[in-house]
Amino acid sequence: MVPIHYYLILSAVMFITGVVGVLTRRNAIIIFMCIELMLNSVNLTFVAFSAYLGNETGQMFVFFIMAVAAAEAAVGLAIVIALFRNRQTVNINDVNILRW
């Protein structure tokens, strides 16, 4: 038998992997993919709890998270394209217009 802890710890490891990617990479597209990785690790948690509790709500969440992720992918990639068109780069160190 596999206790739920295994799934949770695996999910945490993948989540932190995504966090490290977001914090260290400069390529906007890779950061974007890291966010997808984080979303997926959360999905794993949801599905695991759904199975161990015998409750389908977790899988409903996963379904809606995927829908949001799809929407986010479309908009996010559009932003990347717009960014690249204006600045000829996707390196976020070159895009610090938030700075005071």
């Binding site: 161990y52 015998g54 389908e56």
Partner: peptide, 20 residues
């Protein structure tokens, strides 16, 4: 968490396309 050492008996049923 201690009570979740194994999957629920419903797990097999709720994951099907039909149920979802």
């Amino acid at each position: 968490l201690e009570t979740m050492r194994e999957q629920s008996p419903h797990a097999l049923r709720i994951g099907t396309v039909e149920h979802i």
